[in-house]
Structure formats: structure tokens, C-alpha cells
Design a protein around this nucleic acid. Structure first.
Lengths: 134, 134
DNA sequence: GTTATTCTTGTAATCATTACAGGTTTGTAG
DNA sequence: CTACAAACCTGTAATGATTACAAGAATAAC
């Protein structure tokens, strides 16, 4: 937790209640939540919390590298505090998003020319085990 | 073109002027356009064309396998008539989306458990050669 | 303690996409 | 050829996630 506070300070961000709460939620729930989900979850404990704050906080977390944005469906931006190299699987039936991991040195297609890659995203869509058998 | 007409008929879809025009646009322009882009491009030639028709048509093309949906940024659904296995690179500066291809047998991470994968999406974000040098 | 900066809040605006209802075209069967 | 039904297209209105904005609150610096 101290590392979190320090990370915020290193980026000229204050470790406010709201920011810490959002970040803690992301660290505790590896469910790739949307801003709305986080807002709904925190709202009871932070009655004055604003949706806008959640959105702004998530954007800051993304900008400073504490979280990654996951865009699989249009109009549904999810966030993940695990910024390590991994992929996502979204079940088209239940909507749940699963992580899947691979070797650090897994070979990914290279790009010809002088493209400068900053982010790499890999995701699958289909049926999760539970929905497949149902 | 006859194949197109046949494909439509095979899926109980009529090869209407509008559908053919949208499909032709996708085949002629490998720029991963959005519905709005296509609408703007076709509108002059089809003055009565409706945005809704473009949206509905693209959805049909997706459903019948004539096109794929590309979601990289939230709120920006793009379409690609090339449904073969390939990745996309989006330049964060100019916004252009580039294709990149890889071997058919390129190894992709497998998923443990009994997940049923229907779609695979790989994309990168960064600077394209032009924007990088600028 | 005062002042400036950063944060948070709530409401209003945006904008891509979808829902809907009515009119139009196309295919089919007599 | 005619009429009915199904599929289509259109325009407007609604939706819903996200962002803009302005004002008040908290925090840091001096």
C-alpha cells in the first residue's frame, strides 16, 4: 500500500480517499470491471462519490501505468490492475472476462517497417466452460 | 460479384442496392471504416441512404461472415471485409489502422479448460512510421 | 494562515449506436 | 397479372457510456 501512495506522489497525484478506493477495488477484484461497476460497488461506502471521479481516476491510473484499459465490446471499457503481458477471453453468453497467461517470451507477430509498438492486446471471444456445457 | 449476390441469397438476404454498395465499399477500401465513414462516402451517390441502413447492413455482413468487427477504441466500431487471420495496428497519433499479416500456423496461446474460441483478435497501438518520424 | 494547485462533485452535453414505426420493395402463389 | 407476405429501407427518437464544464472542497507550499 505504501508503494501505491508513493506511486501516486511520483506522478504528482495525491493519494486521495477516492483514488485509493478505486485502485484497491481493482487490486481486490480481478473481474475487469467497468467504471460503472466500480462506482456501484464503492458508492455505498462512499456516499458522496461521483461517477465522474471514478472515470477520471481510472484514466489517471491508465496514464500512469497502474492499470490497463480493455476494450473488447464497443461501449464497454474495462480496467485491469494487472498490467503484465496476458490475454483476455470474453464469454459471449455470460459476458464474463477471463484472463489467460502465456510465456513471457511467447512469439508474437512482428511488424515490418518502423512501427513503434506501445501496447499489445490479444483477446478471444467464445463460450466459457460453464456456458458451453449449459 | 456474382458470388456476393449468391452469398446474400444463401443467407436469406436480398442483394439490395444499399447492401451491395456497402459491401463494395468495404471491398474497395481497406481502411477499416466506421459506419459513419461509409455513410458519408456513399451518401452523395445514394441521396436517400439512411445511416440506420448502413448500421444494419454492416451487422448483417458480420453475422453472415462477410466482414469482421474491429473494436480498438471505445465508441469506434470499424469493419473489415478481410476476414482472414490477421492483426491490426492503430496509430495513436493519426488514427489510421494498418493490417499486419502472419503465418497461418503462427502459434497463439492456447487456453486451458474447455473454452470454445470463436473469434481471435490481436492488435497493437503505437506510432506508425510516418507519425514516428514527424 | 493565506494563497495556489489539485481534486471532487453534479449536472449538462456529446456522440455512436440502437429501437421503433411506417412506408417501400421484392418474392411468391394463385 | 394480381395480391399477399416477407424482407427492406428510412427518419426520428431514444439509449447509454463517456466527457466537458464550472463551482466548491481539500491539500500543499510558502
Amino acid at each position: 500500500m505504501e508503494k501505491l501512495v508513493q506511486h501516486f506522489k511520483d506522478h504528482n497525484l495525491r493519494p486521495s480517499q477516492q483514488r485509493m478506493a478505486v485502485m484497491k477495488y481493482l487490486l481486490d477484484h480481478h473481474t475487469h470491471p467497468t467504471a460503472e461497476t466500480i462506482y456501484a460497488a464503492l458508492s455505498p461506502n462512499y456516499p458522496t462519490l461521483s461517477r465522474t471521479t471514478v472515470y477520471q481516476t481510472l484514466e489517471k491510473l491508465y496514464e500512469t501505468g497502474l492499470a490497463q484499459k480493455i476494450v473488447i465490446e464497443d461501449g464497454e471499457m474495462r480496467f485491469d490492475a494487472d498490467t503484465s503481458d496476458h490475454g483476455h477471453f470474453k464469454c459471449v453468453k455470460c459476458g464474463e472476462v477471463f484472463d489467460f497467461f502465456y510465456a513471457q517470451n511467447h512469439p508474437f507477430p512482428k511488424m515490418g517497417g518502423s512501427f513503434e509498438i506501445q501496447e499489445k492486446h490479444l483477446y478471444y471471444k467464445g463460450f466459457c466452460p460453464k456456458c458451453k456445457s449449459a
